[in-house]
């Protein structure tokens, strides 16, 4: 976007101990990096981070837009920043285009992906971007200048947030909301012991593992894998629903996936109505066949 408009891309980094992050961001070739690296910013405090980001914006001549990933942090930070600086906000964008007269026009899914809106953002748009909706291109050989930004005076509560510990729930599978492919299982797997079939297919595809509410409620799978209204909302390129009938509360969590495959014994299961491809059959026999077909074609061992 900046290339088209002839502007600069400025990366703003806020936090503590950001050395490795600075290096990672450099590889994507921003024109400048503004860095607020301060031990007082160790835990993510939306109040503190938004004030630091506002200060970074103050130092720019004519900022056109603020972009962040639609992660938990990005989605929490941007509304706060927009309210602080008199900007506008749209979360979870899937498309961006310049708006006549300034600002951006942003498309975003609503109603659990059952509809979408285009939103006009006239004043400084603060937009979080849906994972997988935009591609990041590395620009090797770039060497942006890193400029330190001193943190402004902050109200005491902003710096009083203390992180006691971080509990990592993911093993070697990618984070569900960011995974480009998700293999998800439901009651049709018949028991927790059969989820190894889901995990095997996920392994050969480098995919995330999801689950329906029913199997999470039954204790077969951890809550961190639940896809749906009370779990995670995901939009991978490929979502494979195995033994999931397709209750509405599950559909709102995954129906905006680019391509949906349903494997279910019941040809009348509602999941087939929203799927792109359907296999009527037992997930317990289809899954191993799928895993070995893909493993062989990729030349990796069949798990």
């Amino acid at each position: 976007m900046s290339k088209a408009g002839g502007g600069e891309v400025v990366a703003g980094l806020v936090g503590a101990g950001l050395g490795a992050v600075v290096e990672a961001v450099k590889a994507y070739g921003p024109d400048r990096i503004l860095l607020a690296d301060d031990p007082r910013l160790r835990g993510f405090s939306a109040q503190a981070y938004s004030k630091v980001a506002a200060k970074m914006l103050e130092g720019l001549a004519d900022p056109k837009a603020v972009l962040a990933p639609a992660t938990a942090m990005g989605r929490e930070l941007l509304p706060r920043l927009a309210a602080e600086v008199g900007g506008t906000v749209a979360p979870d964008a899937t498309e961006l285009s310049p708006r006549e007269g300034g600002g951006l026009v942003v498309s975003r899914p609503i109603f659990g992906g059952r509809a979408s809106v285009q939103v006009d953002l006239p004043a400084l748009p603060c937009v979080s971007l849906r994972p997988n909706a935009f591609a990041a291109e590395p620009r090797p050989g770039s060497s942006p200048k890193v400029e330190n930004v001193a943190i402004p005076e902050l109200p005491a509560p902003a710096l009083a947030l203390k992180v006691e510990k971080t509990v990592v729930s993911r093993g070697d599978t990618p984070e569900l909301t960011e995974a480009p492919i998700i293999i998800s299982g439901g009651r049709g797997l018949k028991g927790p012991e059969n989820f190894v079939l889901i995990e095997n297919l996920a392994k050969v595809l480098g995919a995330g593992v999801g689950a329906s509410r029913a199997v999470v409620d039954a204790g077969w799978r951890p809550a961190s894998e639940q896809v749906g209204q009370t779990g995670k909302v995901v939009s991978p390129n490929l979502y494979v629903a195995c033994g999931i009938s397709g209750a509405i509360q599950h559909l709102v969590g995954m129906s905006s996936s680019r391509c949906i495959v349903a494997i279910n014994k019941d040809p009348a299961a509602p999941i087939f109505k929203i799927a792109n491809y359907g296999v009527v059959g037992d997930a317990l026999t289809i899954l191993p066949a799928l895993t070995s077909t893909i493993a062989k074609s990729r030349g990796v061992p069949v798990p």
Binding site: S116, V117, K273, N276
Partner: peptide, 29 residues
Amino acid sequence: ASGAVRSFALPPPKTGAKMIEYQTPDEAA
């Protein structure tokens, strides 16, 4: 400052899944 909805869209109705016809699980895969 505020944004304003320019347009609302419903996705084209899904016509239902393309169903895979098969004899064996391997063929389906």
